[in-house]
Design a protein around this nucleic acid. Sequence first.
DNA 1: ATACAGAATTCTGAATTCAGAATACGGACG
DNA 2: CGTCCGTATTCTGAATTCAGAATTCTGTAT
Lengths: 235, 235
Amino acid sequence: MHLAPHPSLVEQAYDAILGEIADGTLAPNTHLVQEVLAERYGVSRQPIQQALLLLKNDGIVQDGRRGLIVAPLDMQMMRDRYQVRATLDALAARLAARRCAASPEIAAHTRRQGERILEVGFAAVAAGAIKAMIAHDVAFHAFVYDASGNPMIRPTAEIHWRFLRRVMGEVLRKSEPPMSIWRQHRAILAAIAAGAAEDAEALILSHIESAAARLVADAPMGDEADTKRRAQSRR
Amino acid sequence: MHLAPHPSLVEQAYDAILGEIADGTLAPNTHLVQEVLAERYGVSRQPIQQALLLLKNDGIVQDGRRGLIVAPLDMQMMRDRYQVRATLDALAARLAARRCAASPEIAAHTRRQGERILEVGFAAVAAGAIKAMIAHDVAFHAFVYDASGNPMIRPTAEIHWRFLRRVMGEVLRKSEPPMSIWRQHRAILAAIAAGAAEDAEALILSHIESAAARLVADAPMGDEADTKRRAQSRR
DNA sequence: ATACAGAATTCTGAATTCAGAATACGGACG
DNA sequence: CGTCCGTATTCTGAATTCAGAATTCTGTAT
């Protein structure tokens, strides 16, 4: 894929709205009005409508009573997405390890790439920089997807990442110390580079499941709609 | 989710274009012109443009030299998608089996639902009805996704199904006899309903991998662009 | 206080128009 | 024959307008 010379207004609008949803500026259940967003971002309704079409397709916004709303934070849905993501990450880790087992060149290259990410990741931990930690966490997992040799894994997982971004700050605050997370990353990389497919898979599953488990235990973001829906789904 | 009273022109255009791509009417690499499609379907450019935005987002169409083209049939990409799908189907089968193991009511209900699909599937095989076989094959896998209890698996897999639809007719023609495929479905259902998670997972992986293997062996749809890309990716 | 019907309003889907980027083509020149 | 440049054309992105569905609000009756 070649880089687009510059992103369209639709792409910019998509990223802007997604960013505001991810950082909480646009809260769950907020009513989204095309005209209001168009004025806020200084464009016409049309690219906003198209961006919202993509966001709706991704499930990040949904139909409200009148127009669209920001999808509520549904803890069960987040857990479900973590589960799907875990399976995709496990596939990626396993394949990446197999490729390393099959080729010392690939193993060396993969190790180097991975170590670069670990380096900046540990640096972010040392600096206590939450945003950088999140960015490097995302980069580490993206690296694993790419190392798998199957380019379909990453876009499939990214749909879920867009959702999980909304709670990643929370996961980081409530999860084990960031240092521990990055030690887990290091162990995963070591297993991948060593060609230990089953180890890599087990480590990455454990890594993600512990992050998801924190969401289960604390469930801090449930709102009224979510609570109602959970009650409904128990019937 | 409540049913939409009627699909929008965007949704209809999306399905119509996807259908023509799936059945080969719109061949790989075909140049897609918004105005031409608008006239063909009797609408204005705007819903066509939005439908194409979604199709592009799904990877079914891509940027051409001037506007969009139908994405070429890339065998390696198809195999990659089968691989992702296999992992999602395996997760679904495993979870479905676990739910059956945990609850005799769920097991009974799941068995009944699955047997209904098998019944019509075998009937389609007996009648030699290719289209019906495809529809019921899709229905069987959708049933497994739904039986998993994780509603995120199905939409994640469906993105790949949209691609795989383009070669499913080919896979059916070149794969083992349809009767064998539906016997595999029956074995998968039996393992799920019996709560045998590892068996269910192994069976469904084997089922899908044998379908994907047929694509590998025969590779009948490679075109020049695909051949070039494969050569490039070997460097 | 509640229910209902009609009017008003909101907001979006879709059509149409405008502007411009990118490609294709043709002619001139070496 | 190949290259380069200018023009024409294609086609799309985005803005604007129109039409209408759905929701909200208000007045009236009970």
